[in-house]
Amino acid sequence: MIRSRLLSKSLIYLLLAAGTCLCLFPFYWLLRSSVMDQSDIFVIPPIWTPNDWLISNYREAMTILPFNRYFLNTLIIVVLEVTGVVLSSSICAYSFARLRWPGRNIVFMVILSSMMLPGAVTLIPQYVGWAKLGATNTFIPLTLPAWFGGGAFNVFLLRQFFMTIPKELDEAALVDGAGYFRIYSRIMLPLLVPALVVVGLFSFLNGWNDFMGPLIYLSDEKLYTLALGLQTFKGMYNAQWHLMMAATTVVLLPAMLVFFLGQKYFVEGIVMTGLKG
């Protein structure tokens, strides 16, 4: 009995270790290729560990295209987006969860149903609208929509979270003469922080990883995001794998950093979105 337990346990660890290797391997290959000399890339069979670590690949990749600028552009877009999502989705969720007004539940259901709609249906008219307003080739189409409720899904998520906060808190504050905005900003917002971190992290990653949005709206190279920059880079340096991998690492790194900083929230967040969603 004990022996078979031990056996099955080692089997589990063995399988998990194998899975870990498969998961991590592409990351390793990326890093390994990003620091190699170009001539070493062509060696067959492949070299598993780089002979020397050439940080200069990164410098070279970064000077070919203005990645600093792309980084700044991406950062501006993402910060504006995340701020908009966090502020507007929380105040809207507060209204739907706590304040009674005629038609509230119907309005909420209608807005929620828009989650079913594939982005493709609204993509074209939105583009045409922004084009008519002369707002293409600016960050406006990529950031302004986030300030309008931050997406039905986030409102839904935060509304669920509001349900777990005791109602007595609002009522006590109301008796003390606090207005509704005051209750939202002073009492609810601080309590909402864990859920807001989740919403913020996911919108950060969505913004950082977005490809189609910038692709459609930004045509001036000065406004490119990292994702678009990397795509351009690929067009120019197709076979220069060492430089491509260095550039890819640069695009990847900030997302990874945010992931590791907010790790514990991520798992909570997926569970929250997955099970209650």
Binding site: I91, Y94, W101, I111, G149, A152
Partner: peptide, 8 residues
């Protein structure tokens, strides 16, 4: 309530 929900 309506005012706060107006963005969405």
């Amino acid at each position: 309530g309506l005012l706060f929900a107006s963005p969405v």
